[in-house]
Every structure is written in C-alpha cells, then in structure tokens.
Design a protein around this nucleic acid. Sequence first.
RNA 1: GGCUAGGUAGCUCAGCUGGUUAGAGCGUGGCACUCAUAAUGCCGAGGUCGUGGGUUCGAGUCCCACCCUAGCCA
Length: 674
Amino acid sequence: MHRKILVTHALPYANGSLHLGHVIEAVQTDVWVRFQRLRGHDCLFVCAEDSHGTPIMIRAQQQGQSAEQLIAAMAAEHQRDYHDLLVAHDHFHSTHSEENRRYTFELYARLRDAGYISRRAVRQAYDEQAQMFLPDRYVRGICPVCKSADQYGDSCEVCGATYTPADLIDAVSTLSGTAPVWRESEHLFFKLGAFEPMLRGWLAAGEQGSAVRAKLDEWFAAGLQDWDISRDAPYFGFEVPDAPGKYFYVWFDAPIGYIASFEALRAQRGLDFDSYWKSETQSELYHFIGKDISYFHNLFWPAVLHGAGYRRPTGVNVHGFLTVNGQKMSKSRGTFVTARRYLDHLPAEPLRYYFAAKLTSGIEDIDMNLDDFLARTNSDLVGKFVNIASRCAGFIERGGGRLDTQLPDPALYAEFVAAGERIAGLYEQREYGAAIREIMALADRANRYVDLHKPWALAKDPAQAPRVLAVATQGINLFRALMIYLTPVLPRMSGAAGRFLGKPITAWSDVATPLLGVPLGAYEPLATRLDPALVGRLIEAPPAPAAPAAAPLAAPVSRPATAPASNTIGIDDFSRIELRVARVIAAERVEGSDKLLRLSLDLGAEPRQVLSGIRASYAPEQLVGRLVIVVANLAPRKMRFGVSAGMVLCASGEGDGVFLLGADSGALPGMKVT
RNA sequence: GGCUAGGUAGCUCAGCUGGUUAGAGCGUGGCACUCAUAAUGCCGAGGUCGUGGGUUCGAGUCCCACCCUAGCCA
C-alpha cells in the first residue's frame, strides 16, 4: 500500500538557538520520515520558523534591529543547525510570510463566518511608560500566597501557586520597572467548547497514548473555555483584518505555519493542496511535538482545522523532555548544550544513534547521560556494528576483492531478513529504542557467527581460501542487512557503506536480495570512536562566567583563576543585587544531605534561613557568631530540604574548599554592602 | 497548590491482566582469541524493584500516605 504522508515537527521559535531538546525532536521526526521513504512511501517533511510574538519584538528592540532582521538571522542559524544534524526538511518556511498571512486570514474568516469567533473585553496589565499591554511573564511582584519576592505574573516558582498578574503584590513591569495599570481591551475568542464532542471522538480514534489522553481529559473535565486568539498593538504578527489594532496571537498563526510551509513546497513541486489539507483519507498528517505543547496540538489545532473545514491530523506524536546527566538542562551547570556547541565538537550521527536508542512512543523524559552516550557510541556503533564490516573486509580483499557467489548460511541470513519486518513495525510505532535493541542483538549474532567460523584460523591453510571467502561474504551481508535497518538513523554512514558495497542502499526491501559475486570498494572506517575529552567538553562551564545573580544558591561556580573578567556591567546592574551583612545565629547539619548546612541568619530587622553548600569546609559550630555577606534579595528557592531565602557568599577556586566572605569588626547585621 | 507522567543492578532501560531463584545492553572481574578502530567470544559478580504502611496464600506489579524528578494549569 502506497501512503501519502505529511510530517512536521514543532516550529523552532526565533528567539534563541536550538539546543539538544530541539535536536531530539528533530531527530525523532527525521528518522521517521527517512524510514517511511525507505519503505517506499511518499513522505513530505516541512517546517518553519515561528516568528511572531512579544518576546521577539522585545528582543529585536533590545538588540537595536528590526524584528524582520532578527527572525531572518535566527531562521538562517536554525536551518544551518538542522542541516548539519542531517535533518532534511523538504521545505523550511516562516510564519512571517505571505503564505501564512493568507492562510491565517482564511482560517480566521471561515471560523468567524461559521460563528466560532466571539468578542469581549478583557482586563489586563498595561505599562504606561512602554505603552503596551503586558503578557503575564512580563509582570513581576510578590507572590500573593507565600509572599516570595520577584515572582512571575502567572505562577510562583517558590510555592508553585498559580494566579493572575492582578493578584501579585507590588506588581511591576519588567519592561520599564514601573507599576502597571489595569485597562480593558476587546479581544477575539475562539469557541473551543463547541468542539468538545468532535475532539473527544477524534482523540478516541487516534493513536495518542494513554498518558497524553489522561492529561487531555483534565481539560475536558474542567470544561473547555474560549481561547483568546488576539493581542493588542504593539505586537509583532498579523493584524486582524476586521479588528484594527488587534493582532493574531502567535499561537493562532504558528500551527498554520505548517500549512504555509506546505503551500510554499506545493508551489515548487506542483502538489495537490486539497488531498493533503482537506481530506483525511487521501493522505496522512503527523505532528511531532514535545509534551509541553500537547494541548495546543491536540485541542486547539484540530478544532481550528475542523471548524475551518480543513482536515485534522492523523496523529500527534508527543515526546518527553530531554535531561542531561539526569537533570534539566541548565546554563549555570553548563548542561544547556546548543546544537552548535555539540556540532563544534562531535559528529551528528552518534547523537542521532544515541537519541534513537533511547526514544520510545511515550512521553517519559529522556536522559542524555554523557558517559552512557560515549559508551553506547563506542561499544554499540563502533565495537559491535561497524566492527562486522571492518573484520570481514580484509578477508574479502585478500581473497580477490569480490564477494562469493552464494551465502554459506542462507538460513541465518533469512533470520536477519525476517527480523526486518519486526524492526519496521517498531520504527512505524516510534519505538526506536526497541528497534535499536533488536538490531544490536542481531549484530551480536553476526559477530558470534564470525567467531564461530574463525576465518583467521582457516586463512592459515591456503586450501581453505574458498571457505574464508564464504564466511566473510556471509558477514558482509549480515552487516549490510543491519545497515539497511539503520539507514533512517545513520543516513551518512549508509551512503558510505553503499559505496563500500558497490551498491547504494535505496530501499528497505534491498535486504531481500543478498549481495553476491560483486566487487567491493576499499574499506574505510565507517565510524570512529569518540574521544572522551571531546564529549566532556560539551558541558564545560561556558567561557563567560555567569552573572552572580544567576549562580546556584550558595554553590559558587568554579572557574579557572585565569579567566578574564568579561561581560562588563554598569553600576545599575550591580545595584540590583542587594548584599547585606548578616550574623550567623545558629548552624546545623541538614539531615539527609552531605553538602548542606542550615544557617539561621540575623539581617538586622529580620531572621532568615539559608541552606548553604559549605558543609565540606565548615563545621556548624565554627560558624555561629560569625559575620557573613548575604545576597538578600535573591528569590527564595525551594530545595529538597526546605526553602532557602538568600545566598551566603563564598570564594572558591579550582581546588577543593570554599571560603566564606566576612566583614571586619564594626560592621553590624543588616548593613548594606556597596 | 491541583493534575499528568516517571523513580527497577555503577550507567541506560525491559518487566503484559499480581504467581516459581527480578531480565537485557553497557561498564566491571576472570578466561579465550588475535580477523577487526584494545575490537570479538565464553564465564562470573552486582538489585531489601524511591520511602513507609496496607490488601492478598503470594506484590516491582493493586490501594493509601509521603519524598524526589519532569511537564501542564488556556
């Protein structure tokens, strides 16, 4: 059965560089697309730059360039990264394009004419100095629940409470630092609730896993609310045609970018639009996304499409988040690895292989443990898989450079062929990890086959030369079968292997016909082992030291003493950090932690509790009574053992040990350090 | 705070509707081999299945509470 498939992954946002989290999604998608093509299906792969919204507008202003310049530069960077990661879109477009404007207007008009758009006034924070309405994230203030300072307008990072900016105490705009006022403004709403029965039916019939469905059930249980799809000027986006001064919310036009990108490709290739976007039976449509944006793609997007008379996605494939060495990627830990940083040090294919080896169809998070990455690449990919070709190539070369005309063990080869359908099923289901396990188990069998027949021993007797050639021919064919199965993951290696084998790998079904009686090309190593030093360098602390406010609580980042001070700041920046003298009233070990001490501090007016990671260097009893310097306005942070409200300053170098900063006698608790 | 997922050997993960001595790969120890990028093969050691209760003849697998990790809260 020949399938027509259209595939997308989430649009990268034009506000920052791609990081490993983007990469795993792009790799997951690209592998699936390459797999479908290898199986002989017609599979298109489009993407676009997500170019609209307040963050882009603000960032462009800060950088002194136009939004158009910013998004063009980011799109170019993103495309370079994808290309170097061997992620091969058929087309990469932009949501800030004529195609997207046209389709955004069209879908909006159809929704409006069908009665799915309503208007009503909304009260919102307004920055009179910046002269604009403020998204929740641009308002900060004191948490109304736990009273923690400097929290976002939508939720508190300390206590986890959610609320609206109006609930914040002493709210300020992050743009101007002034207190926002509250203004009413009319907005456009999409009547999502009208689609509840349709969405329930669509989800029930789809392939979304139980975890995704369980999460979406919450939204149904709470009742689907109208969705605000407009924003006030100034906004970087498309102005709503029948509502001057209103712009489409970035999340309204972003998924329509999938259509826009397809449209641009359609114009190039003369494709049929309607069979892809109006019919649910003539083609299949899949979106690959992260679990954070599941509800946009599983609720809003199918509802918008359906309401506008378009087809709905065949499937929305949701994946989990990437952690590095077991933790969320973090700039201060150096684990926020950009795609470019990776590519500057290491080749793309080991990363593709590693991600493929860990991906499932579920939404669990995926951990990139760098030691594991190194081990898997060197032992699986090089040690067992590539090794099969490597150890057999020499025997073929010495035996005349041409494969034998038949296989000595066709039954074993047949098993490898038979496994192909199981493996294909796993790729289709996005169970890449299981597919890779199957493939590596076969690689073990191939190595065992060679070991069992010992061609190196046979080669000592010239009369056994035909037998040596036969065994090596079997080995090369087993290798080729596995290379075919790994082609979606390792396209470049597959190309090189095709040159070595004298026959390019072009289809999954190539495996049905073993390669016999043909000359082989010269063997060149298909992959080399990774250097542990290079892998380690991925997460070295960035050369520019982090600003003090961004450093982890009471855990100074160690850096070379010779690192030059860079990124100069003005006095205003420094004055944002409120340093105060404090006296240690009490200090005790934190039960269950081998690093932390719990310090009770006197800051003059108020007592404070700070958890500090200095246990290795200081005994609690030697601290009581001492004067220390504290970052007094650091946002309180919830740690495993309690809330820490501040940071005690220490010096540290490359060696072990941290050294508390103090104040000369005469200083009193509560004094400001300037 | 509510919700959704995850927490199984040093590392990364399998373990279906509860049932005999909890599995794999990597790493590690020993042996073999030397064709191969110190690659490969064979043998072994390693786990009170996040914690504490409970249901059951029997729980990694069910229930409750708690802890940790990630995400979502329009």
